[in-house]
């Protein structure tokens, strides 16, 4: 083998090794950091994972926002028109958070079935509905119709 070819081969092997290691590490990181989305109905049915972060979304129920007077603790309920869950959060709510608005939260499931949120996302204007929430509402409506037909 000529030195030129040998050099190229060494470089190629190093690059291939490096890229494969990066790919494995990236896939592992991806696996750990994927947040699945669950609707209130799915959470009520016990489909949400018990020990990892996930996203939940729905409409903030009217009159459900309760604040602690001395701290930034707040709790509210999220619904998809079929079921409702309680969300607890400590911190400042986004500008566009309000009752009746479609929002998405990220957090973990507490033993009592409520969601302990680490992040509350409310974006866009009052007419905007996050696509996940819209999808959840549609699914809940369809299931409602199907249940009604069964009865």
């Amino acid at each position: 083998m000529r030195p030129k070819q040998r050099n190229r081969l060494i470089l190629a092997i190093v690059i291939v090794l490096f890229v494969s290691i990066s790919a494995v590490l990236a896939l592992t990181a991806l696996e750990k950091n994927i947040n699945l989305f669950y609707s209130p109905t799915m959470i009520v049915n016990g489909e949400a994972p018990k020990d990892r972060m996930f996203r939940a979304g729905g409409m903030v129920s009217d009159g459900s926002v309760q604040r602690d007077p001395d701290s930034l603790e707040v709790s509210f309920r999220l619904n998809d028109e079929a079921n409702e869950i309680t969300v607890k959060y400590t911190g400042i709510l986004p500008d566009l958070f309000r009752e009746g608005q479609g929002i998405v939260v990220q957090g973990k499931l507490a033993p009592d079935g409520s969601v302990m949120a680490t992040e509350v996302l409310a974006k866009h204007d009052e007419n905007y509905m996050p696509p996940e929430v819209e999808h959840a509402l549609e699914t809940a409506r369809k299931m409602g119709v199907a249940d009604a037909e069964k009865e």
Binding site: S22, L25, A26, A29, L30, K32, N33, I34, N35, L36, F37, M53, R55, Q106, E132, H135
Partner: peptide, 18 residues
């Protein structure tokens, strides 16, 4: 196949070591 999101921890974990 479902609605997921990939959070900042993934990007930090892969980007910083590179």
């Amino acid at each position: 196949l479902g609605k997921i999101s990939v959070g900042p921890p993934y990007f930090n974990a892969v980007f910083v070591p590179l």
